[in-house]
Design a protein around this nucleic acid. Structure first.
Length: 798
DNA sequence: CTCCTGCATGCTCTA
DNA sequence: AGAGCATGCAGGAGT
């Protein structure tokens, strides 16, 4: 019952339908006429009286209850490290609730739905229509006082008072209660959208398979969209707004609060919702069903509590829109920030009965990219991708899954209601994030876990990207500098390792996917992501997995170790640089690419500039250049590309001069590393190197041409970052380090065997004060294929 | 210049 | 096809 109900409805005596008997709340005494009245009976005049004082005191405001909430938080936090992060794709039978031990099993037997309070096990429920009646019971007497599950829906709970008249199809909810009552065959279309799974397994109604299965402890953790217990028939909620709360959560919450939690609806926050504007668009049906009716566009203030008892006042209003209304909650920013919600997270609106206090909970998306996804509610398993925990709705200890956990756990929610203080950081974050997760992101159907995977592979992606096999770069000459342009995006290939002899002979090593043996390949070979010995057409003697390896195990280890260390350092340096520069993800990619290119550059004396790593959506100046950018540019060309390149070249030249002057001032560096003169460095660079393929592949391909074409002509890397000299230098240094490591480690032995020269330890100096670096900076040799983010370009422009 | 407000637009989803 | 809704945008207010 909502606070804005008229007093009669809200009295809680007869009409309120919340009868407390022996510590149990029963809501089965509602009158049907009230049910049919629903919200329509609500007078707008009462809307302002949103929260009777008793409500808060009784439900949330009460310190004891609040403690319980916190207790719940703690318990759940402790006991459920990641339970809800796993969506229902995981085996629910292996729910943490079960893992926590049998002592947490509630009287529902194997349902195991109670993990909240060991001493106060909510065992009473009446979930006939999606709401629950719980109570605390003496542990010594845990029992289940279920309402007669055969009780027809004509005996609805309080929750129905706002709902559509009984008997309307949409009112048959796919909860186990309903399922139990209706049997599976009576599933209505409304249910079918959610596959009508038993969502209230605790409702032990023997005789149904559904419940039988549910009782195996699977369903309590099932986050299943529950059709709202109430709602106007006219405004059937779309399944996407069905609240998804596990039985456990409801039981715990309700049980511990001696109240009934009525999940009303939920909504995945859009970028706009989570943005700075502070407007949360309410689903029309939800707004009209669960919020007070408003006739004026200005609307009415609505008080909503969060789980900590903080009370937020939002302006519930609407805008005229296409002969309809668009309902919004205004002023939600503090609340959103308090919950540290972002686009993709889910806010859940529930109601605490008796009292009708609105409770706004939330559920974190497992990943920030898991944003508005229309498919969310209709996942095959009925789960929510961002299956955090509705419990967190009440725990105020948001734990965004994944890497965000710490961020949110560090947040202190001890603030007062409507206190936006201390939320500025979040505000800043939202300022950034909200825009990023924009209209495009909302249609990004990438699942959160996919995103995680992508995130993981993001770093790895550079190892796998290479120019498309069929790509024929277009040579573009700008200011006497040649560029290679690729029309095709890069492709993924199998990771390989390259070795090089001082003579220039290079080898590529690939590992068979089947036998894991390393096979030597021509250096210019581009392998598909999946490759096995049988595909080794270059060495027929080793085209089967049974063929012995060409190198010993130790050599392999050396090879891998060197490669690993190399990459590790490279990434570390890359990240360092990235952190320093605070680039975007794209920048990071570009940075990594630049580093890789630097390495590639160092190995070879000259390559042409190419862009093998450009992906669809790449915003580097090559990718964004107009079609006119293709082909040969005249020196007088004033297109964006040419202008940018010219600027860049100028910048590079300035930096070169600057560095030269610095070097003159700091000769010590040279003194300490006298070996690192130009000659030696060049020799070194042509020495052995162990690299992962991403730079090598391009390098290998470019090598073939570049060694012919090459080094003399100045070639500008469109992707190199003129403002990131350090990065380039680091890249060079990294390359040096990697080379040194490769040499200093047992790779030496390998080198000897395969005839690859090692490098001297003196080159461990990470200062690439070599001519190579200078050459790179000066534009004498520009290679690299890392793409450049737009931001870089902007920076350049600025 | 930034932020806020109200509305409009257009995409997406549902019936 | 219509409705819903996410977001863009213009105009006004505030800083």
């Amino acid at each position: 019952m909502f606070p804005w109900h008229n007093q009669d409805q809200n009295s809680g005596e007869t009409i309120g339908c919340a009868k407390m008997i022996d510590g149990l709340y029963y809501f089965d005494e509602i009158r049907r006429d009230e049910i049919s009245n629903g919200f329509d009976a609500v007078t707008g005049g009462n809307v302002g009286l949103l929260r009777p004082a008793s409500v808060k005191d009784q439900v949330v405001g009460n310190g004891t209850n609040e403690e319980k909430l916190l207790q719940l938080c703690n318990i759940m936090e402790a006991n459920e490290p990641d339970h809800f992060q796993k969506s229902q794709r995981v085996d629910r039978s292996a729910s943490p609730a079960q893992n926590r031990g049998e002592n947490l099993r509630n009287p529902f037997g194997e349902v195991g739905s109670s993990f909240f309070n060991m001493n106060k096990i909510p065992v009473n429920c009446q979930p006939s229509v999606g709401s629950f009646t719980y109570s605390k019971l003496d542990t010594s007497r845990p029992h289940l006082e279920l309402k007669d599950m055969k009780e027809p829906l004509t005996q609805p709970s309080l929750n129905i008072t706002l709902g559509v008249p009984l008997g309307t199809p949409n009112f048959v909810v796919p909860c186990s209660g309903s399922a139990a009552q209706e049997d599976e065959k009576s599933i209505l279309p409304y249910q079918q959208g959610q596959r009508s799974r038993p969502i209230f397994p605790k409702l032990i109604k023997t005789g149904t398979t559904v419940n039988s299965e549910a009782r195996k402890g699977m369903a309590p953790l099932v986050r299943i969209a529950r059709p709202p217990a109430e709602g106007r028939g006219k405004n059937q909620l779309l399944p996407r707004y069905w609240p998804r709360i596990t039985d456990q959560e409801l039981e715990q919450l309700s049980g511990d609060l001696n109240s009934t939690i009525v999940p009303l609806f939920e909504k995945v926050l859009s970028a706009s919702d989570a943005g700075r504007i502070g407007r949360l668009v309410l689903p029309k049906a939800c707004a009209e069903a669960y919020f007070p009716p408003i006739s004026q566009s200005e609307g009415l203030p609505v008080r909503v509590q969060d789980v900590k008892g903080n009370e937020w006042t939002f302006q519930f209003r609407f805008w005229p829109n296409n002969n309809s209304r668009m309902y919004v909650l205004e002023g939600v920013t503090p609340c959103i920030q308090s919950m540290q919600l972002r686009a993709g997270d889910t806010v859940t609106f529930s109601r605490i009965d008796p009292g009708g206090q609105l409770v706004m909970g939330f559920r974190k998306a497992t990943n920030s990219t898991d944003v508005q996804d229309a498919k969310i509610p209709t996942l095959s398993n009925g789960s929510h991708p961002g299956d955090a925990s509705f419990s967190r709705v009440f725990q105020n200890l948001p734990s965004r899954a994944g890497g965000d956990a710490s961020l949110h756990k560090s947040e202190n929610f001890g603030g007062r209601s409507n206190d936006a203080s201390g939320q500025q950081p979040m505000l800043t974050m939202e300022k950034k994030g909200a825009r990023n997760i924009g209209s495009k992101s909302k249609r990004l159907l990438m699942h959160s876990e996919d995103a995680l995977e992508l995130r993981l592979t993001w770093e790895e992606a550079q190892d796998l990207l290479r120019p498309p096999p069929s790509a024929n770069p277009t040579i573009v000459t700008i200011d006497d500098h040649e560029f290679e342009e690729y029309d095709e995006p890069p492709v993924f290939g199998k990771r390989t390792i390259f070795t090089a002899r001082p003579t220039g002979e290079q080898k590529q090593w690939a590992q068979c996917d089947d036998c894991s043996k390393w096979r030597r390949l021509p250096v210019d070979v581009l392998l598909p992501p999946k490759w096995s010995c049988s595909d080794n057409v270059w060495d027929l003697s080793r085209c089967t997995c049974s063929a012995p390896e060409e190198i010993s195990t130790k050599e392999q280890e050396n090879l891998l170790r060197a490669s690993k260390d190399f990459k590790k350092r490279k990434i570390g340096k890359s990240q360092k640089s990235i952190q320093e520069l605070e680039p975007s993800g794209l920048d990071a990619l570009a940075s990594a690419a630049v580093l890789g290119d630097s390495i590639a550059d160092l190995q070879e004396s000259g390559t042409t500039t190419r862009h093998p790593r450009h992906r669809p959506g790449c915003t580097c100046i090559v990718c964004i250049q107009p079609p006119s950018g293709k082909g040969k540019h005249k020196s007088t060309c004033t297109c964006n590309v040419c202008l940018t390149v010219k600027r860049r070249f100028k910048t590079l030249m300035l930096r070169k001069k600057k560095r030269q002057s610095e070097r003159e001032v700091e000769p010590l560096l040279q003194d300490r590393n006298p070996q690192l003169d130009e000659t030696e460095m060049s020799g070194t660079l042509k020495g052995m190197s162990l690299q992962t393929n991403y730079s090598e592949n391009e390098g290998s391909q470019s090598r073939m041409k570049d060694e012919e074409a090459a080094s003399s002509s100045g070639q500008i890397d469109l992707n190199c970052h003129p403002d990131r000299e350090d990065m380039e230098l680091e890249g060079a240094g990294l390359s040096t380090i990697s080379l040194v490591e490769a040499a200093s480690q047992p790779v030496d032995s390998y080198s000897k065997q395969i005839g690859v020269s090692s490098v001297t330890s003196e080159q461990q100096s990470s200062q690439p004060s070599s001519m190579e670096s200078e050459r790179r900076l000066s534009g004498e040799v520009y290679h690299g294929s890392g793409h450049e983010s737009t931001s870089d370009g902007r920076r350049e422009h600025h």
